[in-house]
Simulated scan of single mutants.
Amino acid sequence: MSAPVIWGGRLIFHFGHLAAEHLNRIPAALYHRPDAHVAVTLPPGRVVADIPPWLWDMLAWYGVAPSRLLAVTNPIEAEQLFVGPQPEHLGAHPPPAWFLDLLDELPRLNDLRPTPTPVVYVTRQGQPALGNGGHAGEGALVRALGRAGAMVIDPARLPLRAQLEAYAGARHLVFAEGSAVHGRQLLGRLDQEILI
């Protein structure tokens, strides 16, 4: 391929790991090469049509249009390949300030409209029925928080943009664990309290 290419990472179909460990190298690479295509690998046996909507939303948040995505399932050649650093990963090391500076710009670049709310609770209610982890009695907690005026959101039922608008507008953001926690990493610095 003669056009410049950025290495975007592995597209695993798991929201939390993708946000925390794989796609975060894209913002810095695109900052330096805004004209480049973004190459990613797909899981074995998967094709572009298998990419879930939330994953397209995450790529769009970083500035990757579908037309610029190169889903690699076989070896390719690129005349120019750019590999940005992976600034965030699971572990004890905080992200560098330059990366947070880039993330701080994404809400503006994406024209995000935060929903001002004192408390947002991000539930996992309904996840045990899907075979995923959850919390006993969370339904009672959700009802009590709703009565107390908290905004309760279920990230499994909201598009990524709506989740980010709720997160960005929250003074206190409370997660019931799970992968949705990593959605907050897409926003950069905000003056808010985060509880898990």
Score class of each variant (00 low, 15 high):
S2E: 12
P4C: 07
V5F: 00
V5D: 00
W7H: 05
R10A: 12
L11S: 05
L11G: 05
I12H: 05
F13R: 01
H14V: 02
H14W: 09
A19V: 15
H22D: 14
H22P: 00
N24R: 13
N24H: 12
I26K: 03
I26V: 15
P27D: 10
A28T: 08
A28D: 08
A29E: 08
A29M: 07
L30A: 09
T41K: 02
T41W: 10
L42E: 05
L42Q: 08
R46L: 01
V47I: 09
V47L: 08
A49S: 12
P52K: 08
W54D: 04
L55A: 09
W56G: 04
W56R: 04
M58T: 04
W61G: 04
W61S: 03
G63K: 10
V64T: 06
A65C: 00
A65G: 00
A65Y: 00
A65W: 01
P66R: 12
S67L: 11
L69G: 03
V72E: 04
T73H: 13
T73G: 11
T73F: 06
N74G: 00
P75Y: 02
P75F: 06
E77T: 14
A78M: 05
E79S: 14
E79G: 14
E79I: 05
Q80S: 12
L81H: 09
V83Q: 08
G84E: 05
P87L: 07
L90V: 12
L90A: 06
L90K: 08
L90C: 03
H93V: 14
A97P: 01
A97T: 11
W98T: 04
F99N: 05
D101S: 11
L102G: 07
D104N: 14
L106D: 01
P107T: 03
P107Q: 02
R108K: 09
N110R: 15
D111I: 00
P116C: 04
P118E: 11
V119R: 09
V120E: 02
V120R: 02
V122S: 03
R124W: 03
P128R: 12
G131K: 10
G131N: 09
G131T: 10
N132P: 00
N132L: 15
G133P: 10
G134K: 06
H135Y: 14
A136G: 09
A136Y: 09
E138P: 07
E138K: 06
E138H: 12
A140L: 15
A140T: 13
V142K: 02
G146V: 07
G146K: 09
R147C: 01
A148R: 14
A148K: 08
A150G: 09
A150R: 06
M151H: 02
V152L: 07
V152M: 03
I153C: 03
D154E: 11
R157A: 14
P159S: 05
R161H: 00
R161W: 01
E165T: 03
E165G: 01
A166Q: 06
Y167T: 01
R171Y: 03
H172C: 10
H172K: 13
H172A: 10
L173M: 07
L173G: 05
V174L: 11
G178C: 10
S179V: 06
S179N: 11
V181F: 14
V181P: 00
V181A: 12
Q185R: 15
L186P: 04
G188C: 08
R189S: 11
L190F: 14
L190P: 00
L190W: 13
D191G: 10
D191I: 01
D191A: 15
E193I: 15
E193S: 15
I194P: 00
I194N: 00
I194K: 06
I196T: 13
I196F: 14
